[in-house]
Simulated scan of single mutants.
Amino acid sequence: MTKKENALKGNDKVIAMLNHIMESELAGVVRYTHYSLMVFGYNRLPIISWLRGQADESLAHAHKAGELITHLGGHPSLAIGPLLETHKHDIGDILRESLDHEGAALQLYRDLLKEVEGVSVMLEEYARTMIYTEELHQGEVNKMLRKPGDVSVFSGH
């Protein structure tokens, strides 16, 4: 086995994890784009703007994961993560589904951090940065789910 083949074999698990992250983020692009098309009512414009921003950010996250995959000598997946159409388009339902999606993404980044900790500073920093970003997203969605004036963390589904 050549040195390059040996290095790639050592990265197989990390590459698979990064591909899973990329697929999940691409699903986020589709999910947030769909949500933005299904918002109606007086507050539509700021909500669709926020949702489209989330779609753009998910695409940027997919790009980062894909770049790391190729950096490690891997091949980015053409797959997309699971998409669930609940047919619930109330903004509260959309936000609760978003909170679930952000939680799943956060777990993928935490799993990656466990895998690369002490092995690659580059991948550790990437995972930590993404964990920070996903935790901020969760907090933002959580605040959006609260009733006006309610400072308590939203905990119900």
Rank of each mutant, 00 (worst) to 15 (best):
Lys3Trp: 02
Lys4Met: 01
Glu5Thr: 04
Asn6Val: 08
Leu8Thr: 08
Lys9Leu: 15
Asp12Pro: 05
Asp12Glu: 09
Ala16Ser: 14
Ala16His: 05
Leu18Cys: 07
Asn19Glu: 08
Asn19Asp: 03
His20Ile: 06
Met22Tyr: 09
Glu23Ser: 11
Glu23Asp: 14
Ser24Trp: 04
Leu26Asp: 00
Ala27Asp: 12
Val30Met: 12
Val30Thr: 11
Arg31Ala: 04
Tyr32Thr: 00
Tyr32Leu: 04
Thr33Trp: 15
Val39Tyr: 08
Tyr42Ala: 10
Tyr42Gly: 13
Arg44Gly: 02
Arg44Leu: 09
Ser49Gln: 03
Leu51Ala: 03
Arg52Val: 01
Asp56Cys: 11
Glu57Phe: 05
Glu57His: 06
Leu59His: 06
His61Thr: 02
Lys64Glu: 15
Leu68Val: 01
Ile69Cys: 02
Ile69Phe: 02
His71Pro: 01
His71Gln: 13
Gly73Tyr: 05
Gly73Leu: 07
Gly74Thr: 02
Ala79Pro: 08
Ala79Leu: 08
Gly81Ala: 03
Pro82Val: 07
Pro82His: 09
Glu85Asn: 11
His89Met: 10
Ile91Thr: 11
Ile91Met: 04
Gly92Lys: 11
Asp93Cys: 03
Asp93Pro: 02
Asp93Glu: 13
Ile94Asp: 00
Ile94Cys: 07
Leu95Val: 10
Leu95Tyr: 07
Glu97Tyr: 15
Glu97Ala: 05
Glu97Trp: 03
Asp100Arg: 12
His101Tyr: 15
His101Thr: 06
Glu102Asp: 00
Ala105Lys: 00
Ala105Met: 07
Leu106Asn: 13
Gln107Tyr: 06
Leu108Thr: 05
Leu108Ile: 05
Tyr109Arg: 07
Tyr109Ser: 10
Arg110Ile: 10
Leu113Asn: 07
Leu113Gly: 03
Lys114Ser: 10
Lys114Cys: 06
Glu117Ala: 03
Glu117Met: 08
Val119Ile: 14
Ser120Phe: 02
Ser120Gln: 00
Val121Pro: 03
Glu124Val: 04
Glu125Asn: 15
Arg128Gln: 11
Met130Arg: 07
Met130Trp: 01
Met130Lys: 13
Ile131Trp: 09
Leu136Thr: 09
Gly139Asn: 14
Gly139Asp: 06
Gly139Arg: 03
Val141Thr: 00
Lys143His: 13
Lys143Glu: 15
Leu145Lys: 10
Leu145Arg: 12
Arg146Asp: 02
Arg146Asn: 10
Pro148Thr: 00
Pro148Ala: 01
Pro148Gly: 03
Val151Tyr: 02
Ser152Cys: 08
Ser152Ala: 13
Val153Arg: 12
Ser155Lys: 12
